[in-house]
Amino acid sequence: MKIYNAKLIIPGLLIFVVMVTFPIWYNKGSAAPPPEPSLNTPAIQRMAEKQCVLPKDQMRTDHMQLLNEWRTEVVRNGNRLYVAWDGKEYNMSLQNECMRCHSNKSEFCDTCHVYAGLKSGSQPYCWTCHIAPKENK
């Protein structure tokens, strides 16, 4: 069997393979360590029982859905009070409630978001309007 235009096809294929595998070999050996979001803030330290709105595992996977539901309730339905599964009450507000405890955005939110490679400067676009707490570094 003879390949026509092999002179062009084979280098072309090579370039294609190199480009497709680019992310793999470019990042080789520089695996980022898994993130460890810090819970070390004064507000969390003061808590007797360190418990978020949902159980930890659920928060980890579903916090964006929760935030979106809160958004809809507050903006569209005018409800602002959330009674959680454990009976605790929360003000449905990213800026005023979530960040009250998690006042360390760069060590809590950003660590995972950067690791997961979220777009727009490695931040979800919540922060283009919502104001992050000032951190004393």
Binding site: N77, N79, R80, L81, Y82, V83, A84, W85, G87, N91
Partner: peptide, 8 residues
């Protein structure tokens, strides 16, 4: 059933 939402 919890959770639920309301006004303040």
């Amino acid at each position: 059933a919890l959770p639920q939402v309301s006004d303040f």
